[in-house]
Amino acid sequence: MSSYAITILTLIVIQAIVVCGLNVIVGYAGQISLGHAAFFGIGAYSAALLSTRGGLSFWIALPLVLIISALTGLLLGLPSLRLKHDFLAITTIGINFIVQAIFLYVPFFGGALGISGIPRIQVFGEALKGAHFLYLCLFFLGVVMAICWLFTRVFAGLACFALREEEAAATSMGISPVRFKLLAFMLGTVFAGLGGALYAHYMRFVSADDFSFPLSVSFLAMLVLGGMGSLLGPLVGALILGALPELFRPLAEFRILFYALMLLLMIRFQPGGILGESSLIRKRLFPLFLRRQP
């Protein structure tokens, strides 16, 4: 594999991890979030600061990064998850802008210069780069997807599905809306934080611009394209939207046109996403591999 392909793939895998987190919030629990890049950024900045100024190795810093992500998720989720629909969407956009502004204007976070000189991740005394870093990201993607899969099979996950479908009915069955929405939100922000930490150590430089609102939209687009609520949807969405700009490179200025056309066609013909409920692939291809009991 060329180093170009490895770079693209690594970024796709990191984004897939973040979109898996978004899937828990939006796909499983049905809470819209348009500020997911903020939590990606919080993970990246925590990892960057802990490894540069804190001098901690990635492996020691990682649990701290995940705890910081979870706590900020809790702190920001607590007020915003009391809102619904458009209000929640707008609030999460606000979170994105505020977090980005803090990164940009608070000197502690490096200001406009960002944070540079983030060390590479060491495994058995060896610095990971190229394909090896990609394998590490794939390992974490595997872990995240396994957790997502498990989450869909436990009662906490089922509670989130119920809240997504009918909050009043779910509440009448003993499900506390705040508790389970927060749980999904925290799980989602932890995955975003993990993706952020990997991103910081891969780019070895972070700045506030890397975590702007358009990135949140792009995460959501990946999720919607791949199929909300499905296990593989985030991966498929990240692959397609990550690879397409590269594949469309020869089209130069027409790139955005094709991009828009594709999204429109998806909305028209496959609104549930590529792997979503009642999508063509799920209807036509899945039955060939899976024999479901009637």
Binding site: L158, A170, M173, I175, S176
Partner: peptide, 10 residues
């Protein structure tokens, strides 16, 4: 099954 979880959720 969602309703059966009543004893589990707390």
């Amino acid at each position: 099954l969602v309703a059966r979880g009543i004893t589990r959720y707390p």
